[in-house]
Amino acid sequence: MSELGVGICDLTLSFGDQLRLDIPSLNLDPTRSTMILGPNGAGKSLLLRVMHGLSQPDTGTVNFPDHYQDPARQAMVFQRPVLLRRTALANISFALKVRGRSSQDAWRRAMTWMMRAELDHLANVPARRLSGGEQQRLCMARALALEPKILFLDEPCASLDPNATVAVEALVQDAIDLGVKVIMVTHDPAQAQRLGSEIVLMHQGRIATKQSKLDFFTTPQNDLVGSFLAGKPLLSHIKESR
């Protein structure tokens, strides 16, 4: 097991004859937040799913530091909020109870996180009646209530308005401040700049670059990064690199 960070080795995943992930090696800092950027179809979400154990790779391994290895120390928030047909509070307490908390403790912790997400006034409202932004904050609160060591975020702000995005980003920042290792997929370079410490750019299932935030935005490692930041199509770069 890796003691240094989250390590990926010889990872491949194909759907039919299409190679969707091809990552010979990638090491992520164990404590600093990682933003995974890239255009649609780059394999960002798929990589996140593989890292969290939701999809199995054809080859290769994902290694975590010892204290991150247990799936119960990990949590994930999806692009579309996934909420049970229960009240907002019950959604969090359910997650805590299945992780072994007593009903009373689960309720208390759930209420604490409802307050931190500024959703306490909606505690007894059916979760699916909340707005999109509130639902995503509830998903963030549920994930953080589990006290994960590592938090996977798959474009949690993809369908949110700017205000809701700010609220979700505040919770992501809370997680980072609490020392949770955050690995987040986003399309938005500005968001990556606000929340990330290291940036991974993916394209067509491969890692195009991994740099610190400062280097990524000031001294791009290659033309691909420059093109991505400039909003140019990236297809030609891959053709050239082949």
């Binding site: 799913r49 154990g53 939701l54 799936p71 996934v82 359910f94 299945v98 992780r99």
Partner: peptide, 19 residues
């Protein structure tokens, strides 16, 4: 609808079925 979420929450088979 819930498969990924339940896997992420580490539900046992019995917990999953009940839910």
């Amino acid at each position: 609808e819930y498969q990924d979420q339940f896997t992420s929450l580490c539900l046992s088979n019995w917990q999953r079925l009940k839910a």
